[in-house]
């Protein structure tokens, strides 16, 4: 019988093990990025711009050119790249604190300019790297290290739905929310990443993929419990789906 290789590490994903905590979904996002880069054969022209957070070590894991950005500013840095190198593929990779709090202005205006880049947004509902503080995406009632009594909208406001918000902007070509906590979810997530890169390659404009992700360490849950929590608590507030998909470039 001839053995056939059906599963391998994407070539653009470096041969080192992730530092991420057990049950964290950052590793899956990295893999999906590697798959997309391999599929389109764009390792030679892809530039990654991670934000500050657990994602900052992207440069250790993806074998592509990578430039660090200050906390929240990755979309502005990516804009600089894309304007100089319009034929390259440029993506940012940002957490919910990075993108939804300190970097809100940059992502909104980059989207609004229809900047032809892809934003990978990892929503784990907390500030992972700094120890699990409340994020703009933290659910009401959720306890974190800075919302010990649970998030209270009187004090902290409501969790922000970034994908819905960005989908309202004319400059946005693609906006989708996907999950990684089950196989079906990963399949759809893979499709969404592929779509976003494909649209960038076709100069369609700003593409955005939000990943609902687990942070078992800071949720104080086991990986299994974290997976269950995504079904029970997270997805009801953050519905999955494609919120916007433009069929042609936006040359009004």
């Amino acid at each position: 019988m001839k053995l056939q290789k059906v599963f391998a590490r994407p070539a653009s994903l470096a041969e080192i093990s992730f530092h991420f905590c057990p049950g964290c979904h950052h590793g899956i996002v990295h893999r999906l990025l590697g798959e997309a880069i391999d599929t389109y054969g764009i390792r030679e022209k892809t530039i990654g711009v991670p934000g500050v957070g657990c994602c900052v070590f992207l440069y250790d894991y993806l074998d592509i050119d990578v430039c660090e950005a200050p906390h929240g500013r990755a979309p502005a840095v990516a804009t600089g790249f894309k304007r100089v190198l319009p034929r390259n593929v440029v993506f940012t990779y940002q957490g919910d604190g990075d993108l939804g709090a300190i970097g809100m202005s940059e992502v909104v205006h980059t989207a609004n300019r229809g900047e032809n880049i892809t934003v990978i947004f990892v929503n784990n509902g907390v500030y992972g790297m700094t120890g699990g503080q409340m994020a703009p995406t933290t659910l009401l009632g959720q306890q974190t290290t800075t919302s010990a009594f649970g998030r209270d909208f009187h004090r902290d406001g409501y969790p922000i739905r970034m994908t819905e918000m960005l989908a309202t902007l004319e400059g946005v070509a693609f906006a989708a929310r996907v999950t990684l906590h089950n196989a079906a979810g990963v399949k759809k997530a893979r499709k969404a990443v592929m779509k976003a890169f494909e649209m960038q390659l076709n100069n369609m404009g700003f593409t955005f993929v939000e990943f609902i992700s687990a942070c078992p360490t800071n949720w104080r849950l086991s990986p299994e419990e974290a997976t269950a929590r995504i079904d029970d608590e997270v997805l009801p507030y953050y519905p999955l789906g494609i919120y916007k998909e433009r069929k042609s470039p936006d040359y009004l």
Binding site: I47, V49, C67, A69, A76, G80, F81, R83, V84, H109
Partner: peptide, 26 residues
């Protein structure tokens, strides 16, 4: 050339950072 009116000076300097990292004089 490329002229962008950014949304803030924070965005401006970081666009400059990106353009510089891409090898341009900016």
């Amino acid at each position: 050339g490329v002229f962008i009116q950014a949304e803030s000076e924070i965005a401006s300097i970081n666009m400059l950072l990106g353009a510089a990292a891409a090898g341009a004089r900016a």
